[in-house]
């Protein structure tokens, strides 16, 4: 009998079909380590567009009149106007040398999205819960209920323009902004989070639609040379494009 709980992304069958090497990341999540090798994947990311699965990232919702203030208090950065991504760097209490990246987005005056790296989920949930305290605000961990895709590369805006009616160009939707919109006829939170010069988007949507959205993007991106990118390539890409 299987004894160690593992966690799966809704996209596992999609990456398996594409020949992913699957590894177990922290906290039991199974992730696609690589598809065509991280070097090749990074080259495509710099030249065309890649899609990566980042579902294991922590995702939380704060709901209530005090959500904006409490999210700001918890992550240490003011979560300002609707659609603005407020990024914070929080010291990892498990590892003093490590800094956790956390972002907060005000979705509406009483609803806030907080996202964080996979390793920081427990800590972020705790600080959010502490910040909320006995107030009327509700904190919900929706990590399991949402997929998260990364779409990275110079052709990423063109790819999104084939499935999303909003203007995703840098001038209208610069890095550090977010919007709730329809992508491939599904409701999603789209966060623009460029990797250096590379246009990059996070798509956060309902878990049950994850495979559909992945397949739709892969089909729409065929003409642009879209390829999947594994966790290793995505991580290295993020590291190498840090300022």
């Amino acid at each position: 009998m299987t004894t160690t709980p593992f966690l799966t992304s809704p996209l596992e069958a999609c990456w398996t079909r594409l020949g992913a090497t699957i590894v177990e990341a922290g906290h039991g999540w199974r992730v696609p380590d690589s598809f065509a090798g991280h070097d090749a994947e990074m080259r495509i990311a710099r030249r065309a567009v890649v899609i990566g699965d980042d579902t294991p990232r922590g995702k939380f919702r704060l709901q209530g009149d005090g959500a904006q203030q409490q999210a700001s208090d918890a992550i240490g950065v003011a979560v300002t106007g609707t659609g603005v991504v407020c990024e914070a760097r929080v010291a990892d209490r498990e590892d003093a040398d490590r800094i956790l990246q956390v972002e907060g987005v005000l979705l509406r005056p009483d609803l806030c999205h907080v996202g964080c790296e996979m390793d920081g989920q427990t800590q972020v949930l705790e600080v959010l819960t502490q910040s909320v305290g006995d107030s009327d605000t509700t904190v919900t961990d929706v990590t399991h209920g949402r997929f998260e895709l990364r779409v990275v590369g110079p052709a990423a805006p063109v790819l999104l323009s084939k499935v999303c009616g909003l203007d995703v160009d840098s001038r209208a939707f610069p890095s550090g902004t977010a919007m709730q919109t329809s992508v491939a006829k599904t409701a999603q939170l789209v966060i623009r989070s460029d990797l250096g010069e590379l246009p990059a988007y996070r798509l956060v949507g309902g878990r049950a639609l994850g495979a559909y959205v992945w397949d739709t993007l892969m089909e729409a991106g065929q003409e642009l040379g879209v390829e999947p990118i594994g966790a290793q390539g995505l991580g290295m890409l993020t590291e190498t494009t840090k300022p």
């Binding site: 069958a13 006829k185 599904t186 049950a208 639609l209 994850g210 495979a211 559909y212 739709t216």
Partner: peptide, 17 residues
């Protein structure tokens, strides 16, 4: 245009298949 018919899959859809 491109066929886009959102279909929701259970978390264990792959097992069923």
């Amino acid at each position: 245009g491109q066929k886009m018919e959102p279909v929701q899959l259970s978390a264990i859809h792959d097992w069923h298949v």
